[in-house]
Every structure is written in C-alpha cells, then in structure tokens.
C-alpha cells in the first residue's frame, strides 16, 4: 500500500499520486469519462479481506491478475433515490424518494497503485443502492488504461 492510503489517524499521512476519476451515469449505464492525476492524501484503504457479503457500496481496484489492491467503502454515488428535507419545524426532517430519472456525474478518488488495472463498483443493485439489505454484486467494471486522460 502506498503512503497516501496508509493514514492511520495517529500521525500525518504523506501525499501521493491519486487518480481523480469522473463518471457519468444515466440509469444503469455508467461511463468513465476522465482520469486526472493529482497529488493528495486519501483516507486509508478499507480491509482487503472484508467478506464478500459485506453490505454497502464499495470501490475496488484490482491488478491484471484480478488481485484486490484497494477497497473503499463509500456512500453510493448513484442517485437512484434521493433525500428530501422537510422545512425546519416539520415532524420528520428527512425522507427518501425514488429519482424520476437517475442521472448524474460523480468523482471517485483512488490511489495510483503499481499494477492497477481495473476499477470495480460493488454493491446492491442500483435500484436499491441505499438499502443496506440488498445483496452486493458487481455493478460496473472499468479498464483504467482506457480512461481518457485529462
């Protein structure tokens, strides 16, 4: 693991090369539209040996042999539903509604790791991205070498 992904919380981490990857999605169609290299610190990788059935949305980076190099658990960036906030003073302040047309752009930050070949999104099927109960599966997989450089 490189320095930029090894921040322990006990001491300052060191910056390293990071891929800033920009994606667009329309429904279940997700496209990697740009790859940009920046120097920055990233939060550490989550444990690589996490059980496959772990709930939530995960970003995985693998090498050409399909070995896992990096795992990041995060809130799903795919807005198939969205939060609506009641005006102050209302009885309940947050509710969720299904998106009329799931569409948008988001960014993923992952370390530039030697041998990194693919990036994979794993989580509940997009219709249920916010429901922790849904079984995780591969949502999309991208060849990092094919990403247009910015």
């Amino acid at each position: 693991m490189t320095d930029q992904s090894s921040g322990s919380g006990a001491e300052p981490a060191k910056p390293g090369p990071v891929m800033r990857l920009t994606f667009e999605y329309d429904g279940n169609d997700i496209r990697l539209i740009s790859r940009q290299q920046v120097q920055m610190i990233l939060p550490p990788s989550h444990p690589l040996d996490q059980p496959a059935e772990a709930g939530g949305f995960h970003v995985l980076v693998r090498n050409a042999q399909d070995q896992l190099l990096f795992r990041q658990a995060r809130t799903s960036p795919l807005k198939h539903d969205t939060e609506v906030f009641s005006a102050p003073g209302g009885d309940r302040t947050i509710e969720r509604v299904a998106a009329a047309r799931p569409k948008g752009t988001f960014v993923v930050l992952v370390p530039e790791l030697p041998g990194a070949k693919t990036l994979e999104f794993v989580g509940p099927q997009p219709r249920f991205t916010t429901l922790a109960a849904a079984r995780p599966q591969t949502i999309a997989r991208f060849d990092l070498d094919q990403a247009p450089r910015r």
Binding site: A73, I94, A132, A133
Partner: peptide, 26 residues
C-alpha cells in the same frame, strides 16, 4: 433514520426488519 419514505408512509412490511445482507460497511 428507521424508515424510507416516512414512518407510517412506507408500504406495510417493506421496512420492518433488516433481512440480512452482511454487516453494513458504514
């Protein structure tokens, strides 16, 4: 929060009990 669209708003039975699917990563 323990509801989706709202307490008493969600369709009956849809948000009663976490059906499993692993320990949430959050």
């Amino acid at each position: 929060y323990e509801y989706y669209a709202g307490c008493g708003v969600d369709a009956p039975g849809t948000h009663d009990r976490y059906p499993g699917g692993g320990e949430p990563a959050q």
